[in-house]
């Protein structure tokens, strides 16, 4: 069983990381997108904080659903519906007593359903998919997350704004993969991973 309290501190921590690194995310998105990924997610993080502060959840599914709905309605851009769909899909999965890897897999399914990206297209999917493998074999760490992140550098974008660049998208880290890296670093930090 995944602990609701720990998940709540995970998601709070994710918001903090995104907010602290707003400029960095904007910079990554300026290189291959339109420079707003950090601003978009920071807006979402503030709204999530407002929703979660002082709130305590009994059911994981309610927590994920609230976070998903807040993100969908506050973030905008591509990442709003994508992260939102991920958490809403995790909310559904949480009803089935899912373990962590099943939950994150459901999150990935939500992202893929919304955005139709496959691995290798230089999107957040290239963070989520290998992270799930690492969670399954117990090897998820800050180092492995960073390794996964660096691999997006060599990829050529074929989804989202970065795809307009074609070959020129090569050599840059994908902003969405970076924000998802914060998500999974927060997962480790909050101790959700040791369940």
């Amino acid at each position: 069983m995944v602990d609701v309290k720990k998940v709540q501190s995970w998601l709070t921590l994710f918001g903090e990381k995104v907010t602290e690194n707003k400029e960095h995310l904007n910079q990554l998105d300026t290189a291959i997108g339109d420079g707003d990924h950090g601003s978009n997610l920071t807006r979402g993080a503030a709204a999530v904080k407002e929703k979660l502060d002082g709130q305590s959840y009994d059911e994981l599914t309610d927590l994920f659903k609230d976070v998903g709905m807040v993100l969908v309605s506050k973030v905008g851009g591509a990442s709003g519906p994508l992260y939102g769909s991920a958490f809403i899909s995790m909310a559904k999965e949480a009803k089935n007593d899912a373990d962590l890897s099943q939950l994150i897999t459901a999150g990935l399914d939500g992202i893929v359903k919304r955005g139709n990206a496959k691995t290798g297209e230089k999107t957040m999917v290239d963070m989520w998919s290998p992270v799930i493998d690492s969670i399954k074999d117990g090897s998820l760490s800050d180092e492995s997350i960073d390794e996964i992140l660096q691999k997006t550098k060599d990829m050529k974008a074929s989804k989202g704004r970065a795809s307009y660049l074609g070959d020129r998208s090569i050599g840059h880290i994908d902003p969405g993969a970076q924000s998802s890296a914060y998500l999974f670093q927060a997962l480790i930090e909050a101790g959700v991973i040791n369940e």
């Binding site: 420079g35 978009n40 969908v72 309605s73 506050k74 905008g76 851009g77 709003g80 519906p81």
Partner: peptide
């Protein structure tokens, strides 16, 4: 209207 250069959200 969305934020500057950012798509509006579904609820809007």
């Amino acid at each position: 209207a969305g934020q500057v250069f950012t798509s509006p959200t579904p609820d809007q």
